Computed example of a mutant assay.
Amino acid sequence: MSESVPAAAPGAQEHPCLALINSAGLQPGGKSYDELATPEAAVAWLKAHGLIAPDAVLYEHCRGRLAALRADLRDLFTAFTAGEAPPAAAVNAVNRALTSAPGTLLLRFDPATGFLRSADHPVTQVVEHVMAVIADDAAALLSGEQAAQLAPCEADSCDRFFLRTHARRQWCSTRCGDRVRAARAYARKRTLQGA
């Protein structure tokens, strides 16, 4: 893992929607990262999360669709954790992703093996399938029992989401917590020196 990409936040390994949302953001000092910056990076990210076959290929258009879903999910999660109504466009985008993947295996005939059923996966259907899986995970998370555990990181300059492992948890990582505590200690020290 690159030093510029933070470790997975709690819940991101179990929920691909959290992993996708957290695949872009800001690091300390305002440096940004994007794990889906190129089609090749998007393929590597999807493979690392077990969402596509090792031989899958994505093009820029598909990468852009995945990045757009990430933005829509971020809007939904931000509204949810703020207790606000989500943007209708974001809800509609997630619903489109939920219904875009074909759910039926098609009937095929191979002279050597006979009839078989398989999915038809041109490049666009690969990304549609991935988007449907991620959108389904987001819908289940937002409407399920774990929804109350969903939280944004409270560290300044961090825009990641995580599932609280305990009620008092405020940060997505030890790194963010350490940064906040160090900033508080520095501020106290400066206040005492100024007094």
Rank of each mutant, 00 (worst) to 15 (best):
M1V: 06
M1Q: 11
V5K: 05
A8P: 08
E14P: 10
A19M: 12
I21Q: 07
N22A: 02
G25H: 11
Q27G: 09
Q27K: 02
G29I: 01
G29Q: 03
G30M: 01
G30T: 00
G30K: 05
Y33E: 08
E35I: 00
A37N: 14
A44G: 10
A44R: 14
W45R: 11
W45C: 08
K47T: 10
K47Q: 13
H49I: 06
H49T: 01
I52D: 11
I52P: 03
I52S: 03
A53H: 11
A53Y: 12
P54S: 07
Y59R: 13
Y59D: 13
G64N: 15
G64M: 04
A68Q: 12
F77D: 05
T78D: 08
T78G: 01
T81E: 03
G83S: 04
A85W: 14
P86C: 12
P87H: 08
A88V: 15
A89F: 03
A89I: 06
A89G: 04
V91E: 05
N92C: 02
L98S: 09
S100R: 08
S100N: 05
P102N: 15
L106Y: 10
R108Q: 06
F109V: 14
F115Y: 05
F115T: 06
L116R: 14
S118N: 03
A119G: 07
D120I: 04
H121K: 07
P122A: 14
Q125V: 02
Q125A: 12
V127L: 08
E128A: 06
H129E: 13
H129N: 10
V133E: 14
D136C: 05
D137C: 07
L141P: 15
L142N: 13
A147Q: 09
Q149W: 05
Q149G: 10
A151T: 14
S157R: 02
R160F: 04
R160E: 02
T165K: 14
A167R: 13
Q170M: 09
T174I: 13
C176L: 08
G177D: 11
R179E: 15
Y186P: 07
Y186Q: 02
R190S: 00
L192A: 15
Q193T: 11
